Simulated scan of single mutants.
Amino acid sequence: MIRARSLGRQARRKAVSGSGELAGPAAVPPAPDRAALREAALAHLARFGTTRQGLEQVLLRRVARWRAQAQAAGADGAGEQAQALAVVCAEIAQDMVRLGAVDDAAFAHARARRLVRTGRSSRAIEVHLAARGVAAPIRAQVMLGDEAESPPDEAVRGQEYGESDYGRGLSAAERELCAGLVLARKRRFGPFGSPAQEGPDTEGAVESESAEDWAAGEWDEDVPPKGPAARRTMRGGRRADARGVHRALGVLARAGFARDTAARVLEMTREEADEWLERLKAES
């Protein structure tokens, strides 16, 4: 039995060419050269939008996969060769920028428009863009949209910004309000909540707190409500409504929305909210 297993292992190791001799160690895969990496970059750009840093990371992952395979095959110097290829990856990414195939500003504007339509706050959008390698001056311009003037940093003046259509017709604050309304519609609170979730004192509580109590408070939906509006809500037997308001505030706060924006979202009527969302839809 043991001998049969040994013979079986030897048979599996034999080359399939018919020579009958044992195969040697696994062949070392060829390292990707500049041409191969350039083709990989073009193939990626044909399918996805990305930034210069994002494209460089795609190419570096390809080199890292080759290095792991080469080291597993026992190749010497794979690490040093991978380091040399990392420089090539950076050069190819920069070439794509010069050719116009990669445009960080265009990517940032398009991604920001999409994220607003999904209910992301400006704070969340800026974090998202920073994680993808968009420079701070470009992020600042994206957040301002049509309110932005020339690029605020000399280091990015060489990039072609073009005329932004990111927020045409809406100010930055209005876009933020629309994003908050999108989130409210998704989570079904505020103007999009069911009538059973709201009480007669809820709108007044939100309006009063936004003006009187929110400036020094903390964003925490688990903290019991305070202030005259909250006491009035409690006395009116609206504890469930107050908890619902604070839960909604917590959702908006965790998403990155400021208190004044959250207050406007929660105190808005359904008709007003629908009008704002129609304006956002018309610009998209």
Rank of each mutant, 00 (worst) to 15 (best):
A105R: 11
A105T: 05
A106D: 13
A106G: 13
F107S: 03
A110I: 02
A110H: 07
R111E: 06
R111L: 04
R111A: 04
A112N: 08
R113E: 09
R113C: 14
R113F: 07
R114Q: 13
L115V: 03
L115S: 05
V116M: 13
R117E: 10
G119C: 10
R120C: 07
S121H: 01
S121P: 00
S122M: 13
R123G: 03
A124N: 01
A124G: 09
I125A: 12
I125S: 03
E126T: 02
V127L: 15
V127N: 15
H128I: 07
H128Y: 14
L129Y: 01
L129F: 02
L129G: 03
A130Q: 09
A131S: 08
A131K: 09
A131G: 12
A131V: 08
R132P: 05
R132G: 04
R132K: 14
R132Q: 15
V134W: 00
V134P: 00
V134D: 00
V134E: 00
A135D: 09
A135Q: 12
A136C: 02
A136W: 00
A136K: 01
I138Y: 12
I138G: 07
I138F: 12
R139Q: 11
V142W: 00
M143T: 08
M143K: 03
L144V: 01
L144E: 08
L144Q: 09
E147R: 11
E147F: 04
A148W: 10
A148F: 03
E149S: 15
E149I: 06
E149Q: 14
S150W: 06
S150A: 11
S150L: 04
P151W: 08
P151T: 01
P152K: 08
P152V: 00
D153K: 00
E154R: 13
A155C: 10
A155S: 14
V156H: 06
Y161G: 12
E163D: 14
E163S: 15
Y166K: 04
Y166G: 07
G167Q: 06
G167S: 05
G167Y: 03
G169M: 03
G169C: 06
G169H: 11
G169R: 15
G169A: 02
G169W: 14
L170V: 09
S171F: 08
A173G: 15
A173T: 14
E174L: 10
E174Y: 13
R175T: 02
R175H: 06
E176M: 00
E176F: 07
E176Q: 07
E176G: 06
E176A: 05
E176D: 13
L177W: 01
L177T: 01
L177M: 02
L177R: 11
L177N: 05
C178E: 01
C178P: 08
C178A: 06
A179V: 10
G180N: 07
G180R: 05
G180I: 00
L181E: 05
L181G: 03
V182Y: 03
L183Y: 09
L183F: 04
L183H: 01
A184T: 01
A184C: 07
A184V: 08
R185D: 01
R185M: 04
R188E: 10
R188Q: 10
R188H: 06
G190N: 06
G190Y: 09
P191M: 11
F192R: 07
F192C: 09
G193I: 11
S194W: 07
P195V: 07
P195L: 06
A196E: 14
A196F: 07
A196D: 11
Q197T: 10
Q197D: 13
G199F: 01
P200F: 13
P200G: 09
T202E: 12
E203C: 09
E203S: 15
G204D: 12
A205F: 12
